[in-house]
Design a protein around this nucleic acid. Structure first.
Lengths: 171, 171
DNA sequence: CAGGCTATGTATAAGTC
DNA sequence: TGACTTATACATAGCCT
Protein backbone atom coordinates (compact mmCIF):
# COMPACT_ATOMS: atom_id res chain seq x y z
CA UNK A 1 0.00 0.00 0.00
CA UNK A 2 2.68 2.38 -0.77
CA UNK A 3 5.19 3.27 -3.36
CA UNK A 4 6.34 -0.26 -3.49
CA UNK A 5 5.02 -3.61 -2.55
CA UNK A 6 6.50 -5.10 0.58
CA UNK A 7 6.80 -8.63 1.72
CA UNK A 8 5.19 -9.45 5.03
CA UNK A 9 8.27 -10.23 7.04
CA UNK A 10 10.15 -8.49 9.80
CA UNK A 11 11.41 -5.06 8.72
CA UNK A 12 15.09 -5.19 9.47
CA UNK A 13 15.83 -1.45 9.44
CA UNK A 14 14.76 -0.37 12.89
CA UNK A 15 13.87 3.19 11.94
CA UNK A 16 11.66 1.97 9.18
CA UNK A 17 10.16 -0.60 11.46
CA UNK A 18 9.26 2.06 14.00
CA UNK A 19 7.74 4.34 11.37
CA UNK A 20 5.73 1.54 9.86
CA UNK A 21 4.62 0.51 13.32
CA UNK A 22 3.24 3.95 14.10
CA UNK A 23 1.39 4.23 10.86
CA UNK A 24 -0.07 0.78 10.90
CA UNK A 25 -0.99 0.96 14.56
CA UNK A 26 -3.00 4.08 13.84
CA UNK A 27 -4.59 2.36 10.91
CA UNK A 28 -5.66 -0.64 12.94
CA UNK A 29 -6.98 1.49 15.80
CA UNK A 30 -9.02 3.48 13.32
CA UNK A 31 -10.45 0.37 11.77
CA UNK A 32 -11.27 -1.06 15.17
CA UNK A 33 -13.26 2.05 15.98
CA UNK A 34 -14.96 1.95 12.62
CA UNK A 35 -16.13 -1.63 12.88
CA UNK A 36 -17.43 -0.86 16.33
CA UNK A 37 -19.55 1.98 15.05
CA UNK A 38 -20.53 0.53 11.71
CA UNK A 39 -21.39 -2.95 12.83
CA UNK A 40 -22.21 -2.73 16.53
CA UNK A 41 -19.21 -4.92 17.22
CA UNK A 42 -17.42 -5.04 20.51
CA UNK A 43 -13.70 -4.73 20.12
CA UNK A 44 -10.84 -5.12 22.49
CA UNK A 45 -7.44 -4.42 21.02
CA UNK A 46 -4.06 -4.19 22.68
CA UNK A 47 -0.83 -3.61 20.81
CA UNK A 48 2.69 -3.52 22.13
CA UNK A 49 5.43 -2.04 20.03
CA UNK A 50 8.72 -3.87 20.07
CA UNK A 51 9.95 -1.23 22.49
CA UNK A 52 7.19 -2.14 24.91
CA UNK A 53 4.94 0.83 24.41
CA UNK A 54 1.30 -0.12 24.67
CA UNK A 55 -1.68 1.15 22.74
CA UNK A 56 -5.14 -0.08 23.30
CA UNK A 57 -8.69 0.32 22.23
CA UNK A 58 -11.80 -1.00 23.89
CA UNK A 59 -15.17 -0.25 22.45
CA UNK A 60 -17.27 1.98 24.69
CA UNK A 61 -20.39 0.63 26.34
CA UNK A 62 -18.29 -1.18 28.83
CA UNK A 63 -18.93 -1.32 32.50
CA UNK A 64 -15.80 -2.98 33.66
CA UNK A 65 -15.03 -0.02 35.82
CA UNK A 66 -17.63 -1.16 38.25
CA UNK A 67 -15.74 -4.35 38.85
CA UNK A 68 -13.42 -3.03 41.45
CA UNK A 69 -12.21 -6.10 43.22
CA UNK A 70 -8.57 -6.59 42.47
CA UNK A 71 -8.80 -10.26 43.02
CA UNK A 72 -11.61 -10.50 40.60
CA UNK A 73 -9.65 -8.56 38.06
CA UNK A 74 -6.71 -10.83 38.43
CA UNK A 75 -8.80 -13.88 37.90
CA UNK A 76 -10.31 -12.37 34.80
CA UNK A 77 -6.89 -11.41 33.67
CA UNK A 78 -5.72 -14.94 34.05
CA UNK A 79 -8.77 -16.06 32.23
CA UNK A 80 -8.03 -13.77 29.34
CA UNK A 81 -4.50 -14.97 29.17
CA UNK A 82 -5.77 -18.45 29.14
CA UNK A 83 -8.03 -17.74 26.21
CA UNK A 84 -5.16 -16.26 24.28
CA UNK A 85 -2.93 -19.15 25.07
CA UNK A 86 -5.51 -21.71 24.18
CA UNK A 87 -5.69 -20.01 20.85
CA UNK A 88 -2.25 -21.31 20.27
CA UNK A 89 -2.75 -24.61 21.88
CA UNK A 90 -0.70 -23.84 24.92
CA UNK A 91 -1.48 -25.15 28.31
CA UNK A 92 -1.48 -22.92 31.29
CA UNK A 93 -0.79 -25.17 34.19
CA UNK A 94 -0.62 -22.39 36.68
CA UNK A 95 -4.24 -21.61 36.22
CA UNK A 96 -5.25 -25.22 36.22
CA UNK A 97 -3.55 -25.87 39.50
CA UNK A 98 -4.44 -22.52 40.95
CA UNK A 99 -7.01 -21.54 43.44
CA UNK A 100 -9.60 -24.11 44.27
CA UNK A 101 -13.01 -22.65 44.74
CA UNK A 102 -16.15 -24.05 46.18
CA UNK A 103 -19.08 -23.12 44.11
CA UNK A 104 -22.60 -23.21 45.36
CA UNK A 105 -24.60 -24.46 42.46
CA UNK A 106 -27.94 -23.18 43.54
CA UNK A 107 -27.02 -19.62 43.93
CA UNK A 108 -25.19 -19.67 40.66
CA UNK A 109 -28.14 -21.19 38.92
CA UNK A 110 -30.41 -18.54 40.28
CA UNK A 111 -28.06 -15.79 39.27
CA UNK A 112 -27.69 -17.28 35.85
CA UNK A 113 -31.40 -17.36 35.18
CA UNK A 114 -31.76 -13.93 36.69
CA UNK A 115 -29.18 -12.57 34.31
CA UNK A 116 -31.05 -14.15 31.42
CA UNK A 117 -34.32 -12.69 32.54
CA UNK A 118 -33.04 -9.18 33.06
CA UNK A 119 -31.15 -9.33 29.84
CA UNK A 120 -34.25 -10.29 27.93
CA UNK A 121 -36.07 -7.41 29.52
CA UNK A 122 -33.18 -5.25 28.48
CA UNK A 123 -33.34 -6.39 24.88
CA UNK A 124 -37.03 -5.67 24.64
CA UNK A 125 -36.62 -2.20 26.03
CA UNK A 126 -33.75 -1.56 23.71
CA UNK A 127 -35.90 -2.50 20.74
CA UNK A 128 -38.72 -0.33 21.98
CA UNK A 129 -36.35 2.58 22.47
CA UNK A 130 -34.88 2.16 19.05
CA UNK A 131 -38.30 2.15 17.48
CA UNK A 132 -39.32 5.23 19.34
CA UNK A 133 -36.24 6.92 18.03
CA UNK A 134 -37.09 5.95 14.49
CA UNK A 135 -34.36 3.35 14.19
CA UNK A 136 -34.84 -0.13 12.79
CA UNK A 137 -38.38 0.63 11.73
CA UNK A 138 -37.91 -0.49 8.18
CA UNK A 139 -38.68 -4.07 9.03
CA UNK A 140 -41.94 -3.17 10.77
CA UNK A 141 -45.42 -3.70 9.40
CA UNK A 142 -47.66 -0.66 8.92
CA UNK A 143 -49.81 -1.91 11.77
CA UNK A 144 -46.87 -1.97 14.10
CA UNK A 145 -46.04 1.61 13.33
CA UNK A 146 -49.35 2.92 14.62
CA UNK A 147 -48.81 2.33 18.35
CA UNK A 148 -45.35 3.78 18.01
CA UNK A 149 -46.66 6.87 16.39
CA UNK A 150 -49.33 7.20 19.04
CA UNK A 151 -46.83 6.79 21.82
CA UNK A 152 -44.57 9.42 20.32
CA UNK A 153 -47.47 11.78 19.78
CA UNK A 154 -48.64 11.34 23.34
CA UNK A 155 -45.16 11.74 24.71
CA UNK A 156 -44.59 14.88 22.74
CA UNK A 157 -47.82 16.36 23.93
CA UNK A 158 -46.92 15.51 27.50
CA UNK A 159 -43.53 17.11 27.26
CA UNK A 160 -44.87 20.20 25.57
CA UNK A 161 -47.62 20.60 28.12
CA UNK A 162 -45.00 20.42 30.80
CA UNK A 163 -42.85 22.95 29.02
CA UNK A 164 -45.81 25.26 28.66
CA UNK A 165 -46.56 25.08 32.35
CA UNK A 166 -42.95 25.81 33.20
CA UNK A 167 -43.03 28.70 30.88
CA UNK A 168 -45.99 30.15 32.73
CA UNK A 169 -44.09 29.96 35.95
CA UNK A 170 -41.26 31.94 34.49
CA UNK A 171 -43.43 34.71 33.18
CA UNK B 1 -13.03 1.91 0.15
CA UNK B 2 -15.58 0.56 -2.12
CA UNK B 3 -17.88 1.59 -4.82
CA UNK B 4 -19.11 4.45 -2.73
CA UNK B 5 -17.92 6.35 0.26
CA UNK B 6 -19.71 5.58 3.48
CA UNK B 7 -20.24 7.57 6.59
CA UNK B 8 -18.93 6.01 9.78
CA UNK B 9 -22.17 5.39 11.59
CA UNK B 10 -24.20 2.34 12.46
CA UNK B 11 -25.30 0.48 9.35
CA UNK B 12 -29.03 0.20 9.76
CA UNK B 13 -29.66 -2.59 7.27
CA UNK B 14 -28.82 -5.68 9.24
CA UNK B 15 -27.81 -7.80 6.27
CA UNK B 16 -25.44 -5.15 5.11
CA UNK B 17 -24.15 -4.73 8.61
CA UNK B 18 -23.37 -8.41 8.87
CA UNK B 19 -21.63 -8.50 5.49
CA UNK B 20 -19.58 -5.45 6.28
CA UNK B 21 -18.74 -6.93 9.64
CA UNK B 22 -17.34 -10.10 8.11
CA UNK B 23 -15.28 -8.27 5.57
CA UNK B 24 -13.87 -5.71 7.94
CA UNK B 25 -13.20 -8.24 10.66
CA UNK B 26 -11.07 -10.21 8.24
CA UNK B 27 -9.33 -7.02 7.24
CA UNK B 28 -8.48 -6.10 10.81
CA UNK B 29 -7.31 -9.59 11.67
CA UNK B 30 -5.06 -9.56 8.65
CA UNK B 31 -3.59 -6.22 9.61
CA UNK B 32 -3.05 -7.37 13.15
CA UNK B 33 -1.04 -10.30 11.89
CA UNK B 34 0.91 -8.08 9.54
CA UNK B 35 1.94 -5.55 12.15
CA UNK B 36 3.02 -8.39 14.34
CA UNK B 37 5.33 -9.78 11.68
CA UNK B 38 6.51 -6.52 10.17
CA UNK B 39 7.16 -4.63 13.35
CA UNK B 40 7.69 -7.21 16.06
CA UNK B 41 4.60 -5.94 17.80
CA UNK B 42 2.57 -7.96 20.23
CA UNK B 43 -1.10 -7.84 19.44
CA UNK B 44 -4.15 -9.06 21.25
CA UNK B 45 -7.41 -8.54 19.45
CA UNK B 46 -10.87 -9.74 20.32
CA UNK B 47 -13.94 -8.84 18.32
CA UNK B 48 -17.54 -9.70 18.98
CA UNK B 49 -20.11 -9.33 16.27
CA UNK B 50 -23.44 -7.90 17.31
CA UNK B 51 -24.76 -11.44 17.27
CA UNK B 52 -22.18 -12.46 19.82
CA UNK B 53 -19.81 -14.41 17.66
CA UNK B 54 -16.23 -13.98 18.75
CA UNK B 55 -13.08 -13.69 16.69
CA UNK B 56 -9.70 -13.23 18.17
CA UNK B 57 -6.06 -12.91 17.37
CA UNK B 58 -3.15 -13.06 19.71
CA UNK B 59 0.37 -12.72 18.46
CA UNK B 60 2.28 -15.98 18.78
CA UNK B 61 4.72 -14.86 21.40
CA UNK B 62 3.42 -15.19 24.89
CA UNK B 63 6.27 -13.36 26.50
CA UNK B 64 4.02 -10.65 27.77
CA UNK B 65 2.70 -13.00 30.35
CA UNK B 66 5.98 -12.78 32.14
CA UNK B 67 6.03 -9.01 31.94
CA UNK B 68 3.70 -8.95 34.85
CA UNK B 69 3.91 -5.24 35.53
CA UNK B 70 2.99 -4.33 32.02
CA UNK B 71 0.61 -7.19 31.81
CA UNK B 72 -1.28 -5.76 34.69
CA UNK B 73 -2.38 -3.02 32.38
CA UNK B 74 -4.26 -5.62 30.47
CA UNK B 75 -6.54 -6.26 33.37
CA UNK B 76 -9.15 -3.84 32.21
CA UNK B 77 -9.18 -5.33 28.79
CA UNK B 78 -9.38 -8.75 30.25
CA UNK B 79 -12.39 -7.80 32.30
CA UNK B 80 -13.93 -6.30 29.31
CA UNK B 81 -13.33 -9.32 27.20
CA UNK B 82 -14.78 -11.62 29.77
CA UNK B 83 -17.81 -9.46 30.25
CA UNK B 84 -18.38 -9.39 26.55
CA UNK B 85 -18.27 -13.11 26.40
CA UNK B 86 -20.66 -13.55 29.25
CA UNK B 87 -22.74 -10.71 27.96
CA UNK B 88 -23.47 -12.59 24.84
CA UNK B 89 -24.25 -15.73 26.70
CA UNK B 90 -21.40 -17.57 25.15
CA UNK B 91 -20.18 -20.63 26.84
CA UNK B 92 -16.49 -20.58 26.63
CA UNK B 93 -15.83 -24.26 26.66
CA UNK B 94 -12.15 -23.79 26.58
CA UNK B 95 -12.24 -21.98 29.84
CA UNK B 96 -14.74 -24.25 31.47
CA UNK B 97 -12.82 -27.32 30.53
CA UNK B 98 -9.43 -25.96 31.28
CA UNK B 99 -9.87 -23.98 34.39
CA UNK B 100 -12.56 -26.07 35.94
CA UNK B 101 -13.21 -25.16 39.52
CA UNK B 102 -11.67 -21.77 39.29
CA UNK B 103 -13.93 -20.66 36.52
CA UNK B 104 -16.97 -21.83 38.40
CA UNK B 105 -15.92 -19.97 41.44
CA UNK B 106 -15.63 -16.61 39.86
CA UNK B 107 -18.43 -17.22 37.46
CA UNK B 108 -20.76 -16.82 40.39
CA UNK B 109 -19.09 -13.63 41.39
CA UNK B 110 -19.31 -12.44 37.86
CA UNK B 111 -22.97 -13.34 37.56
CA UNK B 112 -23.71 -11.49 40.72
CA UNK B 113 -22.13 -8.30 39.50
CA UNK B 114 -23.59 -8.86 36.07
CA UNK B 115 -27.08 -8.98 37.52
CA UNK B 116 -26.38 -5.65 39.16
CA UNK B 117 -25.04 -4.18 35.98
CA UNK B 118 -27.89 -5.33 33.78
CA UNK B 119 -30.39 -4.20 36.35
CA UNK B 120 -28.85 -0.78 36.40
CA UNK B 121 -28.94 -0.65 32.63
CA UNK B 122 -32.55 -1.71 32.83
CA UNK B 123 -33.38 1.05 35.23
CA UNK B 124 -31.80 3.67 33.04
CA UNK B 125 -33.64 2.51 29.98
CA UNK B 126 -36.84 2.35 31.90
CA UNK B 127 -36.42 5.95 32.95
CA UNK B 128 -35.66 6.98 29.41
CA UNK B 129 -38.69 5.14 28.12
CA UNK B 130 -40.91 6.70 30.76
CA UNK B 131 -39.71 10.14 29.89
CA UNK B 132 -40.28 9.56 26.21
CA UNK B 133 -43.79 8.52 27.06
CA UNK B 134 -44.36 11.67 29.02
CA UNK B 135 -44.33 9.97 32.40
CA UNK B 136 -42.35 11.13 35.39
CA UNK B 137 -41.40 14.36 33.73
CA UNK B 138 -42.60 16.57 36.51
CA UNK B 139 -39.34 16.31 38.35
CA UNK B 140 -37.30 17.31 35.33
CA UNK B 141 -35.71 20.64 34.74
CA UNK B 142 -36.72 22.62 31.67
CA UNK B 143 -33.30 21.97 30.19
CA UNK B 144 -33.75 18.25 30.52
CA UNK B 145 -37.01 18.39 28.63
CA UNK B 146 -35.42 19.72 25.49
CA UNK B 147 -33.50 16.62 24.38
CA UNK B 148 -36.56 14.54 25.13
CA UNK B 149 -38.70 16.74 23.00
CA UNK B 150 -36.16 16.63 20.23
CA UNK B 151 -35.90 12.85 20.37
CA UNK B 152 -39.67 12.53 20.22
CA UNK B 153 -39.92 14.96 17.37
CA UNK B 154 -37.23 13.12 15.42
CA UNK B 155 -38.80 9.75 16.14
CA UNK B 156 -42.19 10.93 15.07
CA UNK B 157 -40.81 12.28 11.86
CA UNK B 158 -39.03 9.01 11.20
CA UNK B 159 -42.15 6.95 11.78
CA UNK B 160 -44.30 9.25 9.67
CA UNK B 161 -41.82 9.23 6.84
CA UNK B 162 -41.89 5.48 6.94
CA UNK B 163 -45.67 5.46 6.98
CA UNK B 164 -45.77 7.82 4.06
CA UNK B 165 -43.50 5.59 2.05
CA UNK B 166 -45.62 2.56 2.89
CA UNK B 167 -48.70 4.47 1.93
CA UNK B 168 -47.28 5.14 -1.47
CA UNK B 169 -46.77 1.45 -1.98
CA UNK B 170 -50.38 0.75 -1.20
CA UNK B 171 -51.80 3.27 -3.62
C1' DC C 1 -27.19 -16.07 3.10
C1' DA C 2 -22.20 -17.20 1.52
C1' DG C 3 -18.90 -16.38 -2.18
C1' DG C 4 -16.95 -13.85 -6.06
C1' DC C 5 -16.33 -9.43 -8.74
C1' DT C 6 -14.68 -4.63 -9.68
C1' DA C 7 -14.73 0.25 -9.27
C1' DT C 8 -13.46 3.13 -5.96
C1' DG C 9 -11.87 4.89 -1.46
C1' DT C 10 -8.11 4.23 1.94
C1' DA C 11 -3.87 3.08 3.91
C1' DT C 12 0.68 3.40 3.52
C1' DA C 13 5.91 2.82 1.54
C1' DA C 14 8.88 5.74 0.05
C1' DG C 15 10.28 10.22 -0.73
C1' DT C 16 10.84 15.22 0.60
C1' DC C 17 11.66 18.94 3.74
C1' DT D 1 13.00 12.75 14.17
C1' DG D 2 8.72 14.28 12.66
C1' DA D 3 5.50 16.32 9.48
C1' DC D 4 3.87 16.36 5.00
C1' DT D 5 3.30 14.59 0.09
C1' DT D 6 2.56 11.25 -3.51
C1' DA D 7 2.28 7.08 -6.07
C1' DT D 8 0.78 2.66 -5.31
C1' DA D 9 -1.02 -1.37 -3.16
C1' DC D 10 -4.73 -2.86 -0.65
C1' DA D 11 -9.45 -3.02 1.41
C1' DT D 12 -13.96 -2.96 0.61
C1' DA D 13 -19.15 -1.12 -0.83
C1' DG D 14 -22.25 -2.28 -3.84
C1' DC D 15 -23.47 -5.85 -7.03
C1' DC D 16 -24.30 -10.23 -8.70
C1' DT D 17 -24.87 -15.21 -8.42
Amino acid sequence: MGRGKIEIKRIENSTNRQVTYSKRRNGILKKAKEINVLCDAEVSLVIFSSTGRMSEYCSPSTTYISLSSVFFSLVLCACYTYICMMGFGLKCEKIDKGVGQVSEGFREEFLSSEVDRVRKENDNMQIELRHLKGDDINALQPKELIPIEEALQAGLEGVRAKQASLHLVFL
